[in-house]
Amino acid sequence: MAAMTESDRKPSGPAAAALLSVGVGSLALGVFTFLAENVKSIGKALNWYHPAGNLTGKTGLAIILWLVLWVILGKAWQGKDVELGRIYTVTLVLITMGFLLTFPIVFQMRF
C-alpha cells in the first residue's frame, strides 16, 4: 500500500463529530424517556402520533437533536484534528447513561 502523505491524511474532526453527536443523541433518548414517564405534561407533549404514543416524540426529538448537533459539530471541526480518544470516552459515557435511562427499572422510578 502506498504510504499516505500528510496532505492525504484525513483529520479526526468529522469522525469525532459523528461520535459525540450520537452520544448526545443517545443520552437525549434516555432523558426524554425518563421525563415522559415522570412528567405527565412532557409525556403528553411527546405524543406526536397517537397510535404509537409518546415513543414517537421521544425518539423523534432525540433524532432531531442528534442530527442538528452532528451538523453543527461537523462544521465546527471540519478540517481539524481533535482528541479522538477523549471524545470516544465521553461518547461511551453518554451512551451508557442513555442506555440506563431507557432501562424500565430506572425510568419507572417515581419521584
Binding site: A18, T59, I95
Partner: peptide, 27 residues
C-alpha cells in the same frame, strides 16, 4: 417497555459507526 426504547439506539449507533468507516476509508 425496554424493547421499544432500547431498539432505537441501534440505528443511531450503526449510522455513526458506518460514517466513521466511510469517512476514513483506507486510512
Amino acid at each position: 417497555e425496554w424493547k421499544e426504547h432500547v431498539a432505537w439506539f441501534a440505528p443511531l449507533l450503526a449510522t455513526a459507526a458506518a460514517y466513521v468507516v466511510w469517512y476514513y476509508g483506507k486510512q
